[in-house]
Every structure is written in structure tokens, then in C-alpha cells.
Design a protein around this nucleic acid. Structure first.
Lengths: 140, 140
DNA sequence: CTAGGAACTAGAGTCCCCTCTAGATCAACC
DNA sequence: GGTTGATCTAGAGGGGACTCTAGTTCCTAG
């Protein structure tokens, strides 16, 4: 194999991005690459660093809850080019809002969770104390 | 219907919790109620405020990403009673960790998203400026 | 009495996001 | 030339969490 240092096999991309090989093919099928994935010897996919960079963005957007359909729309806009910044802006702002509200929802939930943890810590402490005083009693 | 103020129909519970009637039946089927749901005239489900309170907890835990299987395990522990506080504590602590790390992942993602929003804001501004100078040109 | 609306059951369907299978092909090394 | 290991395609499978359907039953009001 002619070792073009800028070209990567699907396995290498999987390794670098943490996505599975299956997922990479799936993403391609779903139109989530800005540039069509080239093919090398024997029809094998050839990626480059730009693809990895783009996937990194995709992974972050996915991790923050962007559905594939939206990610795909975004990819389309990026592929399409420069004169649709408003749309990309709108899409990103919408996503930003979703993420911030998700963070605040989680933060609120965390209050309850912390409260529950506190309650059970107390219960466990009481349980231990009771056990010391009175072996094996299950008062609580 | 004898209006017992403490007993609620499935429709009332759906209204108060925001869960759908379908979801309530589904949750019951999945064992997510601490106390078996009683049945009234004609086999209809009868709930009370405790059920609503419990569902409120469930909703918060679900909203913070607890899978139904874990929620079910937790429900089992609560149903079982007082001498398993350690297990409940462990479960809640684990969930707490998941939630805190999810929050930090989201917060990290938010950095990229904000950056992108900034980039597109600039692009849009430039676009507007360019459009003022030179009607309809698409330089970017 | 009848109509309307709410609830019942069992089970199928949906949506999302992959993941895996099967069987074929290809490249590289010994 | 043969084996090994990576890759290919098309399509099926799976898990999570509901959601909906169909057909029926029941309560309440008019």
C-alpha cells in the first residue's frame, strides 16, 4: 500500500474517533460527511484528517443530544457552502438553547438526587449505629 | 362516582404528571409503581397522591437519564423496604455520578456550540456588510 | 334508554441509533 | 499459492421507551 500519510482507512478512523466501523459506514449512508468518502484500491473507503475533524465535531454535537436528522441538515448546509450562514446560525442557536436547558434540567434533577443520597447516607449511618448497639436488629 | 378526594383516575394522574395515559399503563406493566395500582369500579385504575409523588420522582430520575431498568431496580428496593439503604445509596450515587459527568460533557460541548454560533454570527454580519456594499454578492 | 366519553386489554408499531450477520472480495506476507 | 486479516455490500436485528390500534366495557348525563 502506498502510504499516503494523509489518507486513512476505515479502521484507522474508527480507532481515532472512537466510532465503530459500522457507525462510520452508517454515518456515510446517512449523509453525515461533508465530502463524499473517496474510494481507494478495491473500493475501500479512504478518509483524511478533514474527515476526522468533521467527525469530531459530529461526535460533540451528537453527545450534546443533536439528533441525526438535525446533524444531517447541518451537514447539508455546510456542504452547500457559504451563503447560508443565517441558517447555520439559527440551527446552532437552537441547539445551544436545547443544550443549556438540558443542562439546567439536569442540574435541577441533581438537587433531588443529592437529597436522596443524603437521606440514604443518614439511613445507612443510623443502621450502622443501631447495629452496633443491638446486633442485627432491623429497626429502619 | 363517590368522589373520594384522595383517589384519582388515570386521566387525572396523566394530567397532573404530564405522562400520557399510555405511559402510565406502560410504567405499571414495567413494575415502576411502589404499590400495586388498585382497581375500582369496572377494573379501572385508582391512584392516590402518593402515586403522583412517586411518579414525580420517577419523572425527575428519567429526565436525568436513568434507564427504566435502573428505575425499576430502585422501585424494587423502595418497595422492599428499610434494610437496603446501602443498595439504594449505591444506586443513587452511581446515578449522581452519571448525571454530573453528563453535565460536564454537555458543558464542554456547549463551548464548541458557542464557538460555532460566534463564527456564524460573524459570517452573517460580514454577509450583511458585504450586501450593503455590493448588492447581492456572495463572496463568503 | 341512549349517546358520549373515559377506561380496559393485548399486542403491534414507531422512532432513534446503531450493531451485527452473511457471504464475498481484496491486499499483503510467507 | 495460500492464509490471514481488513474491508466490502445489503439487509436483518436489537434495545430503549414509549405510542397507538382495535375492539370492548363501563359510568354518567340527558
Amino acid at each position: 500500500m502506498v502510504e499516503d500519510p494523509t489518507s486513512l482507512s476505515i479502521g484507522q478512523v474508527a480507532e481515532r474517533t472512537g466510532l465503530s466501523i459500522h457507525a462510520l459506514r452508517f454515518y456515510e449512508q446517512e449523509g453525515l460527511f461533508v465530502n463524499a468518502v473517496r474510494r481507494g484500491a478495491g473500493g475501500r473507503r479512504v478518509y483524511d484528517q478533514d474527515d476526522v475533524d468533521w467527525l469530531t465535531v459530529c461526535i460533540i454535537l451528537r453527545a450534546s443530544g443533536m439528533p441525526l436528522t438535525v446533524l444531517r441538515r447541518y451537514t447539508d448546509l455546510v456542504r452547500e457552502g457559504g451563503d447560508n450562514a443565517e441558517e447555520r446560525l439559527a440551527l446552532m442557536r437552537e441547539h445551544q438553547e436545547r443544550v443549556t436547558s438540558q443542562i439546567s434540567r439536569l442540574t435541577e434533577s441533581l438537587d433531588l438526587i443529592k437529597f436522596k443520597v443524603g437521606v440514604y447516607e443518614d439511613l445507612v449511618d443510623q443502621g450502622d449505629a443501631a447495629a452496633e448497639q443491638c446486633h442485627g436488629s432491623s429497626l429502619t
